[in-house]
Design a protein around this nucleic acid. Structure first.
Lengths: 335, 335
DNA sequence: AGTTGCAATGAAAGCGTTTTCATATGTTAT
DNA sequence: ATAACATATGAAAACGCTTTCATTGCAACT
């Protein structure tokens, strides 16, 4: 069933059918109705590829996300998709995984689909891998690039992110102020924001003249899904070093540490203060509730959509939108 | 940059370029190299739409998911996408939301993109809304439909699901056996599997001759993100009825009930037994750890991919694959 | 009645591929 | 050297739309 079939049955030309399909102004109401009836009757849907060939814009945004099963990324994708949808843009969501080649392939594929822009959600390696940087630069030649939770200096690239550095810096400083000097810093990814967070921690420690903090910076490479495994990991660390505070760059890591504390008979926050990151729903799942740094994902997503719409409308938009996060204090901290 | 440009620069015809692109057997090695070099040099990517017009199959599967930010659905999508990808199929993921019209539009759109099959993940209303049933039937005329976690009788529709009815029936029976007769059943969605779960609960109660259980079946309509709100809800219920057991059709709901218990000074599982559903990572986030019904999502996803590959290969495949779930007993139950 | 102008419609080109079929080229057998 | 054949390549049609430009039909003017 093609546009020709419809035009035959309706006794009009394909141009008219096309006009009806695209809601063109200039079609007589009775003609329009006749065509629509046939379309309805035969349950005709225009071929998206053929359509794609003719149109300049398909009102589609490419959404690249490393892993949609990640709590944080999934929410980000959700917010962005909703925002775009309510502004008439469809999203083409691709989950790239963390492999660079896969990512590059998806990027090319998505560009070849004539998307009006590309949104990178959790593009973890930006700023850390020259290879990835190059992909971004190449892609930005063809289409505007929006980065969520990362920053990159390049024409046609717009960054929306949270000041992770300051967030962690302040959280660590608060902990230090509370007299807790042996802080375990737990992270799980060498991403752009991951680096910023880590730097925040290091700066805070240095600012207080603490020198031997490096041994307390630990990398967890397992899955965030398995809280007990994280607890095991924390347990192992505790055998080599002591800590009375934890700052984790993901809520799940923080909760894993709480689980370790519980197993070890430690009380939170009396014996161990814990701060997570992302302020996700997990904060409410544990007891006491987890203090966590809120990076205002929702606002970021909203800003991203607004910026994107502006860019597409040809307006000059800020190339960087930086949000200040904040520590949401709950039961796992006593300061 | 089109295939013509490449063919010119390489001094060959577009047919040859096309053959190179598609890894055809019959191209002389030196010609192939020459073309590939030009392609590399100009960073050419074939236009996906044009390609779509020529090909019969694009090795693409449409993946429809109501809400990718839902923990359960996100994982389902992830597993399926990985499975398909490793078998050479790309996924076109669309998040439809829970609105029927949006869903129908996406369905049509996705079909017009010549997908080889459609996978519906969390198609909540199947079997509950005649309108949705009709979409499925219509779509199945054009392309095979795979359902995850739902069942539907129709040619060209393949269902993979878990026996939710029995799962809940047995969980409730265990609880009754343990002497807990006042069980609160908490659910949040009138989906296919939601109905089956509910039926399981009702049957279990009836089987034991308990008559006044209907008042203990409660519908929570808020977001699963907000544990404290769920706790408030449970608190409110507790003022109108008493319960010493909870069976929830989502882990988050169960954890909300635990939070309520904690607030009310009740001990879990001594004063209140709690069973969740999905056996998600949330089960490890609370104390004690949550007993939960595992609906073996991963196996379901795997089976779905295998069935799909079979169907696409023209083999006869089972139209229904039913998995038996199981109650994973942890700290919130003492039986 | 003749002219003008506009609204509705149609004819046809173009979009960038894939694919079929014909042709040129090279290789082997006679 | 020639015939026969396989192999590599090219020309052109096809895919199903959108869009431009030309044309038709009709109403409102003069």
């Amino acid at each position: 069933m093609t546009i020709y079939d419809i035009s035959n049955k309706a006794g009009v030309s394909i141009a008219t059918v096309s006009r009806v399909l695209n809601g063109s102004d200039k079609v007589r109401p009775d003609t329009r109705k006749r065509v629509l009836d046939i379309i309805e009757q035969y349950d005709y849907t225009p071929n998206a590829f053929a359509r794609g060939m003719g149109c300049k814009s398909l009102q589609t945004i490419g959404l690249l996300c490393a892993d949609s099963s990640d709590l944080f990324l999934a929410k980000a994708v959700y917010y962005i998709e909703q925002g775009l949808q309510s502004n008439g843009y469809a999203s083409l969501l691709c989950c790239t995984g963390y492999n660079l080649d896969t990512k590059k392939n998806y990027l090319n594929m998505i560009i070849s689909k004539k998307v009006d822009a590309i949104v990178l959600v959790g593009s973890h390696f930006i700023g850390t891998t020259e290879e990835e940087n190059q992909y971004i630069r190449d892609a930005s030649e063809k289409v505007p690039i929006m980065l969520l939770n990362a920053s990159f200096n390049h024409p046609n690239v717009y960054s929306i992110y949270c000041d992770d550095y300051t967030n962690v810096f302040e959280a660590a400083t608060s902990m230090l102020d509370a007299g807790i000097h042996d802080i375990l810093y737990l992270y799980n990814f060498d991403s752009y924001s991951g680096k910023r967070k880590l730097n925040g921690f290091q700066s805070a420690m240095q600012a207080r003249g603490i020198v031997d903090y490096e041994k307390n910076i630990q990398f967890y490479e397992g899955s965030l899904e398995n809280i007990n495994e994280i607890a095991d990991f924390a347990d192992q660390i505790s055998k080599e070093t002591t800590f009375h505070g934890v700052i984790a760059c993901e809520d799940a890591l923080a909760i894993g540490c709480m689980k370790y504390a519980q197993r070890a008979g430690l009380t939170v926050p009396e014996d161990l203060s814990v701060i997570g990151y992302n302020n996700s729903m997990l904060t409410a799942c544990c007891t006491p509730e987890l203090s966590s740094i809120d990076n205002c994902l929702k606002s970021q997503a909203h800003q991203l959509v607004q910026t994107l719409l502006g860019v597409l409308a040809g307006e000059a938009m800020p190339t960087k939108s930086v949000f200040a996060g904040k520590l949401v204090k709950r039961g796992t901290t006593k300061f």
